[in-house]
């Protein structure tokens, strides 16, 4: 009998297969079909984006954030990268019997602060409790809706476009991995967990902006492999342009991780026309969350898949994450 494997939650190849072979078999709809971070719907002639996400991160508290902050940022960012202004959130909790109320309160404080910063109202919610050992402390689901400012369908993407990253890659994945205490490494890596409203809203107006994605599970490499698969275009990424924190790079080398596959929770990949790319980067750099923004590559019709041009000029294929070395990262 085939069973669910941990890799089905990786956000990579297995997740995609599960969705395409099983979920879409029964749940296919026009709105769901693009399989983007949020769906566009039309309610009484109002264009709305809607998205939902569940959070199961382990540990619940990690340097730079906790599951509550993550649950707001993740959903807010999914709306933003879909070209929508986040408006309202619904939130659901699954709590384990025996979970300390103090910890729950800490999570709720973060939720309040983050929602305020992101300008979203939490307007409905749900709470369920399961028996001890039937879940791992707290799981959270958030659903968000927002007004579409600028639809950014993947069909916008065309050869010659530039690939932009808004900052250093792999911070969240590394911070959570280290906070699990499985490695005897002490480092000051914090999660980049952040709501990106202030960073991304100013660039929505720019004509050349075509598509966005927040590279969470599976990291930048998996998000780009996904984009390459859905557009049929090749993507070339220049290793020496990709911003990576010095400590993240060092520890990655030591542990055998590739920062391009580590999760991010406060970064966005932007696809923009070549002409607008420098202007977009200049605007991003003005915000503290975008200081390290860079053009890291380009879209090409000359090949398929995602190619990494290494520092020495070599070539390496970046495929979708096959298997999650760090499950439950968000």
């Amino acid at each position: 009998m085939k069973k669910i494997e941990i890799g089905h939650g990786s956000g990579g190849r297995l997740t995609r297969e599960l969705i395409e072979r099983l979920f879409l078999k029964y749940l296919r709809s026009e709105e769901l079909k693009p399989l983007e971070d949020a769906a566009y719907i039309n309610l009484r002639d109002q264009n709305i984006a809607i998205t939902t996400d569940s959070y199961v991160v382990r540990p619940l508290f990690f340097p730079g954030g906790n599951i509550g902050k993550l649950a707001i940022c993740g959903t807010v960012n999914d709306l933003l990268v879909s070209g929508a202004m986040p408006g309202y959130l619904a939130i659901g909790f699954i709590l384990e019997e025996g979970f300390p109320l103090d910890s729950l309160e800490d999570i709720l404080k973060s939720i309040k602060e983050t929602a305020q910063y992101a300008g979203v109202s939490i307007v409905t919610g749900d709470t369920k409790v399961v028996e001890k050992y039937k879940c791992d402390g707290v799981y959270i689901n958030t659903t968000g809706v927002g007004e579409v400012i600028k639809p950014l369908p993947v069909s916008n993407v065309s050869p010659g476009d530039a690939v932009i990253i808004t900052g250093t890659v792999g911070d969240h994945g590394m911070a959570v991995a280290l906070s699990r205490d499985e490695f005897d490494i002490k480092a000051a890596v914090e999660s980049d967990c952040a709501a990106l409203n202030e960073l991304l809203m100013p660039i929505m107006e720019i004509d050349g902006l075509k598509w966005m994605r927040d590279p969470t599970r599976g990291g930048v490499a998996t998000a780009l492999a996904d984009l390459s698969e859905s557009t049929g275009f090749g993507i070339e990424i220049f290793e020496d342009k990709v911003p990576v924190r010095e400590d993240v790079r060092f520890i990655s080398d030591m542990l055998g991780y590739d920062p391009l596959y580590l999760a991010n929770e406060g970064k966005a990949i932007l696809i923009a026309s070549r002409e607008s790319a420098d202007r977009i980067v200049a605007i991003l750099k003005k915000h503290p969350l975008g200081h390290n923004a860079e053009v890291i590559g380009n879209i090409s019709a000359k090949f398929r898949k995602v190619k990494l041009r290494t520092k020495i000029g070599g070539e390496r294929l970046l495929d979708m994450l096959e298997e999650d070395m760090l499950p439950r990262i968000c």
């Binding site: 290494t310 520092k311 020495i312 000029g313 070599g314 070539e315 390496r316």
Partner: peptide, 9 residues
């Protein structure tokens, strides 16, 4: 060697 794509060069 593998991560730098050296063989491709």
């Amino acid at each position: 060697i593998a991560f730098s794509g050296m063989r491709s060069l």
